[in-house]
Computed example of a mutant assay.
Amino acid sequence: MKISLLPVTSTPQPYSRVTQHPAELLRIFDTGTQVVRWQRCTNLVITTYLQQVTTSGLLISGFRTCLKANQQLDPIHLPDGPGRSALADDIHQLSVLYHDLLGCPMVGLRLEVLHNAMCPRFHVDRTGIRMTCTYLGPGTEWIDDVQVDRTRLGAGANGLPDTQSGLFTTDETSIEAASCFDVVLLKGTLWQGNTAQGAIHRSPATTPSDNPRILLVIDALWD
């Protein structure tokens, strides 16, 4: 998948953006923008496949791998069944899109099968720009930093939950969330000029009765 170049501005832009078009993912490079969400339609073939392989126990722990630019994902990483090739193709398309955005020689790719929230507290990643896509279950959640006190993230919370640490500076703090199949770009503190910023996000809450959450994460590899 190729995306057309858009002008990148150094003028501070909105903290987060929502778009219907993959070309708008380039807005993650704008100064001040920390989250870009590309809304996509659910692929029922992939959804059905993941429900079947998780229920049957064929997909338990996911996988981790590295891909070069335009390298196809080997379907061997996924259990056999109707829909496996559709998921492999979608992961490949997203990795190519990410390659095109970042210009990195390789990507680190992981598919997580989660029964509990991986990162339940709001936090900022020490990464450059990360791509995520939830294929099954609730999507990643984030909040605008104008509604929080960043000093209360991590150790600054003094062990208190987010609702008691003083993180939220208003009673009306709104939590945004991605839907299944949405592609989300999260800018971290290691991105140039972004040391004191970064997308404030967390994993969604789950219950024991929920089906596993299937999450794809892609990061740039430079060496």
Rank of each mutant, 00 (worst) to 15 (best):
A177F: 01
H21M: 01
D162E: 05
P79W: 07
H92K: 06
T47A: 11
T140W: 07
L186M: 14
G103C: 15
F181E: 02
A88W: 01
A178Q: 08
A69D: 13
R121W: 06
I91N: 02
T151N: 11
T140C: 13
G188P: 06
A177M: 11
G159P: 10
I143Q: 06
C133G: 05
G156N: 06
P161F: 01
Q71G: 05
G103Y: 10
G83F: 01
P138I: 12
G139L: 05
C119N: 02
K68V: 04
A196S: 14
L44D: 09
W38N: 04
P7N: 05
V183P: 08
T173C: 15
S209P: 06
L5T: 13
L73T: 06
V45N: 02
T132R: 02
V96F: 08
P22V: 07
G57F: 04
R150F: 08
N158K: 10
K68R: 14
G154S: 13
T169P: 00
T47V: 11
H201W: 07
C104S: 15
L87I: 12
H201K: 08
L190F: 03
C180H: 00
R152G: 03
D89H: 09
G139T: 13
V184K: 01
L216I: 14
T206F: 04
L5D: 15
D219G: 13
A196Q: 09
V35E: 02
G154W: 05
M118T: 12
G154Q: 11
K68G: 15
R202D: 07
L67M: 11
H99A: 14
Y49K: 02
G137Q: 07
Q52W: 02
C66G: 04
I143S: 09
G198V: 04
P204K: 02
